[in-house]
Amino acid sequence: MNDARVVLFFNNFYLYRMKASFDFEQPLVDLEEQLEKLKQVADKSKVNVSATIRELEEKLEHTRKEIYSNLNGWQKVQLSRHPGRPYTLDYISMLCDDFIELHGDRTVKDDKAIVGGLGSVGGQTVMFIGHQKGKNTKERQYRNFGMANPEGYRKALRLMKLAEKFNKPVVTFIDTPGAYPGLEAEERGQGEAIARNLLEMSVLKVPILCFIVGEGASGGALGIGIGDRVYMLEYTWYSVISPESCSSILWRTWDYKEKAAEVLKLTAEDMLSNKLIDGVIPEPLGGAHHDPQAMASAIRSKILSDLKILGRKAPAKLVQERIDKFCAMGVVNEPAS
């Protein structure tokens, strides 16, 4: 299925993203270099520069705070795709004392772009499901860049039904550039697979928590995104289309991706103020990849506190509230009758 050229295209795409720092992080890189040089000088000559070093460190800290608290939409999109960010299996291993991965949709095959299984968090058994991206070229190819085929969504549904049967809550991690737009995906009903998940998740009788931990692109994200609580990490995005594709459709060129990121209002902050998600989880300064453990522990406390509240609700009430929440989304004009 993976034509060599496709792989090459995506690899180049990822290599471009692989740059350790983004343009907007350049001042930090410069300061860090300066600091490094100064430290070397201090080691060699015995001149006392500790005051200057301290000053530089303070400046670095200050600049860092300033840069990361003033990111625009496109910059957050870039951060959400940082190759160093933790992915689903990283979070699972940081959160769980024990984890058993479960495979396959029982119909076609095991999709590697969506993973799932039973994990134990603070003594509580949880069904984890999430998109999985790869850390290097080979892994990325193996994971199909986090783009699931229909069998991925059907595996997710199978695991949710399993969780429902044994009354275990479901936690999903969303991080996908979209559902895979391939020939076989169409043959096996990509649309039907996602649609079925939307319907089944909205009436699943156990609590569902969803975390957007990277990219939340359209139906591919929503296909495992119907939850009682939906959270976005601070530097992630969630919308109906990626800024690049939006730009190419509306402006007929990729050059307006920054503008598209702006107008789509796809950041966690915007999504919360439009009441399309339930909360934003702050990330460590500079992004989740700067301190994965701290990120995981923030997610862990969210899971535990939410499950405590949701676990007390009767299944019928839980489902009704979930449906009501999604049905309230949308803005229309209606003349007063």
Partner: peptide, 11 residues
């Protein structure tokens, strides 16, 4: 309508 239209799928 960006994410608003996405959520119509859910609704």
């Amino acid at each position: 309508e960006a994410a608003f239209s996405l959520m119509q799928m859910a609704k």
